[in-house]
Simulated assay, not measured.
Amino acid sequence: MSSSNQPSKARGQAKSLEGTVTETVGNVVGSKNWQTSGKKTHAEGEAETKAAETQGYVEGTIDRVTGKIDNVVGAVTGDTTKQTKAAAREEKGKLQQDLNA
């Protein structure tokens, strides 16, 4: 799900770092424009990182809930294959939530 219009942790962190470097260079050379530009770029990067984390957490929640429902359905119907797949999806969702908490 790494479409260019979707938030990306990696892209956000890179942009944040770029902003920090630009601001630091601005501080060293005394350029207010670079300082301001760096702060703005850093903030944009931090916002994108946070948006990507939020999106990942929500996707993890969906997987956990869907997995739990499918697990119950599998248990009620006696479909052990469905239960196994559901448990895996539920665990995947939990991991995704943990990575984005």
Results as ranks from 00 to 15, higher is better:
Q6E: 15
Q6P: 03
Q6V: 15
P7E: 06
P7Q: 05
P7F: 09
S8H: 05
S8G: 03
S8R: 03
S8K: 01
S8F: 06
S8Y: 01
K9S: 09
K9Y: 07
A10P: 02
A10T: 14
A10D: 14
A10N: 15
R11P: 00
R11C: 06
R11I: 07
R11A: 08
R11H: 11
R11G: 00
G12D: 04
G12F: 04
G12K: 01
Q13H: 12
Q13C: 08
Q13M: 12
Q13S: 11
A14K: 15
A14Q: 15
K15F: 06
K15R: 13
K15E: 07
K15H: 06
K15W: 07
S16P: 04
S16R: 08
S16K: 13
S16W: 05
S16G: 06
L17G: 11
L17C: 07
L17F: 09
E18L: 12
E18F: 06
E18T: 07
E18P: 01
E18V: 03
G19E: 02
G19W: 00
G19R: 05
G19D: 02
T20K: 14
T20L: 13
T20M: 13
V21T: 08
V21C: 03
V21K: 04
V21E: 03
V21P: 00
T22V: 14
T22Y: 02
T22D: 01
T22S: 10
T22W: 00
T22Q: 05
T22H: 00
T22I: 13
E23C: 04
E23R: 12
T24M: 12
T24A: 14
T24S: 15
T24H: 13
V25K: 13
V25W: 06
V25H: 03
G26T: 02
G26H: 00
G26Q: 03
G26L: 06
G26R: 02
G26Y: 04
G26E: 04
G26M: 06
N27C: 10
N27W: 06
N27V: 10
N27M: 12
V28S: 08
V28C: 06
V28N: 10
V29H: 05
V29C: 11
V29K: 14
G30K: 07
G30R: 08
G30T: 05
G30S: 05
S31T: 00
S31R: 04
S31G: 06
S31F: 02
K32H: 09
K32N: 08
K32P: 05
K32D: 07
N33I: 12
N33P: 07
N33M: 13
N33S: 14
N33K: 15
W34N: 11
W34S: 12
Q35F: 00
Q35Y: 04
Q35K: 11
Q35T: 10
T36S: 13
T36V: 08
T36Y: 06
T36P: 02
T36N: 12
S37K: 15
S37F: 09
S37V: 10
G38W: 03
G38K: 01
K39F: 05
K39G: 03
K39R: 13
K39Y: 04
K39E: 12
K40I: 08
K40H: 08
K40G: 01
K40M: 07
T41P: 02
T41E: 13
T41A: 11
T41D: 08
H42E: 15
H42D: 11
H42P: 03
A43K: 13
A43E: 12
A43V: 07
A43P: 08
